[in-house]
Design a binder for these strands. Structure first.
Lengths: 160, 160
DNA sequence: AACCTTTAAGGAATGGTTCCATTATCTAGG
DNA sequence: CCTAGATAATGGAACCATTCCTTAAAGGTT
């Protein structure tokens, strides 16, 4: 049972940003794939639809979404590129340092964690990254990730 | 009451790595400062002692320490450079997106979090990053970070 | 002390991300 | 509708943290 996300487009509009076909397409792409995309992978995906799309536009849109808190940044998964998180529900991320995929892990403890943070600082928490690193495989075939939902975690989701 | 850290030098030796003056100096530098240094800031610090030190050596040593789990990587604090964590006790990191400093926050919930991770995956957890982002200041003077231990958190430690 | 292997140094290369100038596009106001 | 003013997209150049490569310089072992 995959939860439908609140629209990124709506979030941009509410924050007072102009809507353009590119932004709409990027938001669509973000909301349809349940992985942890990089700027480049999004670019490739949306460029299929808008051949004139600039990589720069993807970076700008991601930055805008970050600033309004609609997405978060998870940093690198051992591949020196930034992975983004579209699922804003509090959860743990498991990153594999071999295949560089990240999957979500539901957590009950993380609510308490965020409460601790909120209490410790006066100002508002803008975003958070909770990532644990491991090796999901002995072999190096990414299609066989041991973090895969099929093997250990019904609700986990795997990305590239 | 600051806890004395287990030696990084010893960890390297135990892992079978050769000791060199440079590595020793870098480990010393890491263990004496209680912040979340970047490769460059370590380089500047140790270069004062070893003028011939190469930035490359710092990167290599940090990578080695990462691989044996003696330190962890926290990623960027909004400044597009990697900050390292020398305190391997489980804790929360608070990063300020204005002044790019990170401080530690003791947490009780984080033990439960790591237990959840350990249970979810079969393989060993290599490292983790638990970072929350906020703005510590209205004004932009880094010396006045609201995350500063003096103001809110006795055990917090602030870095650049 | 000699040998083999690991490490340091220096500099060049890489590549993700950002910056800049120009052109196109959106939205509000007339 | 049309126009004006502001925001966004594009393309390409620039940036800079990090990595790669090659050579010279130690470690540590027999």
């Amino acid at each position: 049972m995959v939860k439908k996300r609140t629209g990124l487009v709506e979030a941009l509009k509410e924050a007072g940003f102009r809507m353009t076909p590119q932004r709409t397409a990027i938001c669509e792409a973000l909301s349809t794939r349940f992985d942890h995309p990089t700027a480049h992978s999004l670019y490739e995906q949306v460029k299929a639809e808008y051949s004139s799309l600039s990589l720069n536009t993807v970076y700008q849109t991601l930055d805008t979404l970050l600033r309004i808190g609609a997405i978060t940044s998870l940093g690198s998964a051992g591949d020196d590129t930034i992975h983004f998180e579209v699922n804003t529900d509090p959860h743990i991320n498991l990153a594999c340092l071999t295949c560089h995929r990240i999957c979500d892990l539901n957590s009950t403890a993380i609510q308490a964690l965020e409460a601790e943070v909120q209490e410790a600082i006066g100002s508002k928490v803008l975003s958070g990254r909770v990532v644990y690193y491991s090796e999901c495989l002995e072999q190096s075939d990414p299609s066989d990730c041991r973090f895969n939902p099929a093997s250990s975690n019904k609700e986990g989701r795997v990305d590239e």
